[in-house]
Design a protein around this nucleic acid. Structure first.
Lengths: 141, 141
DNA sequence: TCCAACTGTAACTGTTAATATTACAGTAAC
DNA sequence: GTTACTGTAATATTAACAGTTACAGTTGGA
C-alpha cells in the first residue's frame, strides 16, 4: 500500500478536527511526521479531486470542502492508491509455450482485481468522520 | 503485496498441473520467470508448512502433497505474505501532544487489520484447483 | 510597493527494500 | 565417485520510496 494514502487520510482527519478546518502544509507535516513538500504534493491531488480547497500566499493553507461523514476511505484509496495491492512484479509470460506459464499473468490479474474490489468495499464503510471518532475514543481510554 | 506470494501460487498451480505432480527448481523457475535459488527459498517455506515435499539429490525436486482443491490462496497468503497490505511507513507519533497525531497510528493499524481480514476471506474462496481451472478456461478462448 | 508567508512543482539525493546472482555444502541415484 | 539435485547464506544490482532543496508564483498586510 502506498503511504500517500496514509498521508491523505491523516491530513483530512486533522483538517476535520481543527475548529476552523484549516491548516498550512507546515503544520500538517509536523503532525503527520513528514516533509511539507510531500504534504503539498498529496494535498494537491486532493484539491484536484475536490476534497480540499487551497489558498496560496500569506495566511494561506488547506481547507476541507466536503462533509467528513460524506468522505470515505474508498474515495481516497481510488484517488491516491488505486491498484496498490497488486505487486508490480509478475510471473510467467504470455509468449511462453506452457499453458500455465502463458496464462498465469491474466488469471493472477483477475484475482487481484477481485481483491481490490473487496478492499474498496471495506474502505467504503469507513468515513473520515468515523476515523475522527475512533481517535477520540482512543484518547479517552 | 509480496511477490513471493505470486511465486508460491504459480509454483503450486504448475505442480498441480503436471501429471506426476513433480518438478525441479530449475523447471519451475523457467516457468515462473525468476531464478532457481528464489524458487528454492519460496518452496522451502511451503515445505515447512506442509504443502509440498522435497527430495534432494539426483532426480529430486518438489511434489505437491495436498489436494489442490483443499489449498486456498488464504493459506498461502498467511504463510508467505501476512501483513503485506499495511504500509511499513506510518504517520503521527504516540508521544505527540495533538490528539490526532498521537492516536493516528493505532487507529490506522486497526483499519489495516480489518482490511487484512477482508482480503483473507476473499482469498479463502479461491483454491489452487480453481486457479488451474481458470487457466484452462483462458487457454480455450 | 515591498516584504513575509504561503502554495505548486520539479529536480536531486539518500536510504531501504526487492530481486538477481553466485557459491558451496549436503544428499541421493545410478 | 560422478552427476543432478536441494538448502542456505552471502553478495551484487536494481528499483522504489521518502526526504530535501530550490525557486517561481500568489496573496495579504505593513
Amino acid at each position: 500500500m502506498n503511504s500517500e494514502f496514509i498521508i491523505a487520510v491523516h491530513s483530512l482527519v486533522l483538517l476535520a478536527h481543527k475548529p476552523d478546518g484549516m491548516a498550512s502544509s507546515e503544520e500538517i507535516a509536523a503532525n503527520v511526521c513528514t516533509h511539507p513538500a510531500r504534504v503539498r504534493k498529496v494535498l494537491g491531488f486532493l484539491r484536484k479531486n475536490g476534497y480540499v480547497t487551497t489558498r496560496e500566499g500569506s495566511g494561506g493553507g488547506y481547507r476541507l470542502c466536503i462533509d467528513p461523514s460524506d468522505m470515505t476511505l474508498a474515495d481516497i484509496y481510488r484517488t491516491m492508491a488505486a491498484g496498490a495491492i497488486k505487486p508490480n512484479w509478475c510471473s510467467g509470460n504470455p509468449d511462453m509455450d506452457c499453458m500455465v506459464g502463458s496464462n498465469m499473468q491474466e488469471v493472477m490479474n483477475d484475482v487481484f482485481c477481485g481483491a481490490e474490489k473487496q478492499l474498496e468495499s471495506y474502505f467504503q464503510g469507513i468515513t473520515i468522520g468515523q476515523m475522527l471518532s475512533r481517535i477520540k475514543a482512543c484518547q479517552k481510554t
